[in-house]
């Protein structure tokens, strides 16, 4: 029981990170019908930006308060990652609209390879460890054999994720920008006839996706305390799995899918074998895509000529 509770706490933490990345996949797929293969690497870039800003803030500016430093990190990572993704969309995807079906996907694969190797060349292939932070824990259940604990950083990850998701939900549901975004998702041509700047809306979708991926990046840095240039690929595929599991195109679906993938991964490692935890995640992707491609909350895809 204690083990179960502890894994539940860990799984929700990991799931929040996957959910934040998954939203970027699902929004881009919803609006232009493309798997943004480079999104996992955008997440990795944001984690690096977080590490670099954290070092600037703590060593150069000498800010001692971890909370303030992390806040500055979060803002900087969100802004800079948004600029990155805006540029990527502008350079690699926008000119391909109306090209043949696989062109944007191949371009995105190229971009993914480019990003991870750019970071490898620019920042070096070694892992980047950060000083552990927010390491204090609260013991929830004390027992002689196994104590259930929740750490401050887990609480912080839950809180930040929840607050930002609520803000994001408000943005998509209540603001003119969100309305334009949902309109483009339903019918791009009709939306442009009604005076919505489709290109701008698509750009902003990429910006929103990147900002949320940046939150995930900062959380990832805090949670694991180490970042590497190759960290984009596997979390990227897992977050994509989450988006597919939740129903691609559906925002609550992405969050639910993320939490499920996080829980499955953590429970798999705890009760079966840690060696095959990635195999488990990849198998879920395959099984879901084959047997229920519309996911939990998605709409079945209608093929039009």
């Amino acid at each position: 029981m204690e083990v179960f509770l502890q894994q539940l706490i860990n799984g929700i933490t990991l799931g929040s990170i996957y959910g934040l990345i998954a939203i970027g996949y699902t929004m881009v797929f919803g609006i232009i019908g493309m798997v943004n293969f480079a999104h996992g690497d955008v997440f990795m870039v944001s984690a690096f930006i977080a590490v670099i800003t954290f070092l600037i803030v703590t060593t150069w500016l000498g800010i001692g308060s971890i909370a303030l430093a992390l806040f500055i990190c979060l803002i900087a990572a969100m802004v800079l990652t948004s600029i990155w993704n805006w540029t990527i969309e502008r350079v690699a995807y926008r000119p391909l609209r109306g090209s043949f079906r696989l062109a944007p996907l191949i371009s995105a694969i190229g971009m993914s390879i480019f990003l991870s190797n750019f970071v490898q060349v620019a920042q070096g292939p070694r892992n980047k460890p950060v000083t552990p932070m927010l390491t204090d824990v609260i013991t929830l259940i004390r027992s002689d054999i196994y104590s259930v604990t929740i750490s401050y950083k887990q609480i912080m990850i839950w809180a930040v994720t929840a607050v930002l998701l609520m803000g994001f939900w408000y943005l998509v549901q209540k603001t003119p920008l969100g309305r334009a975004q949902r309109a483009c998702e339903q019918d791009r041509k009709m939306a442009s006839l009604l005076g919505i700047d489709v290109d701008r809306t698509i750009s902003l979708t990429f910006v929103m996706g990147a900002a949320l991926a940046a939150v995930a990046g900062v959380m990832y840095m805090v949670y694991y305390g180490v970042v590497s240039f190759s960290d984009g690929f596997t979390p990227g595929v897992k977050a994509f799995t989450a988006a597919v599991l939740g129903g691609i195109g559906s925002l609550p679906g992405a969050v639910i899918g993320g939490l499920l993938i996080g829980l499955i991964e953590v429970f798999w490692s705890a009760y079966f074998t840690i060696d095959y935890k990635d195999v488990a995640a990849f198998s879920i992707l395959v099984v879901v895509l084959i047997f229920m491609p519309q996911g939990i909350l998605g709409k079945p895809e209608v093929e039009k000529v």
């Binding site: 391909l96 944007p104 191949i106 371009s107 390879i113 480019f114 990003l115």
Partner: peptide, 15 residues
């Protein structure tokens, strides 16, 4: 720079 150029070339050729 090999893989870096591979990636850039894939994007470039698509454009």
């Amino acid at each position: 720079y090999r893989t870096l150029l591979f990636g850039a070339a894939m994007v470039g050729i698509m454009l």
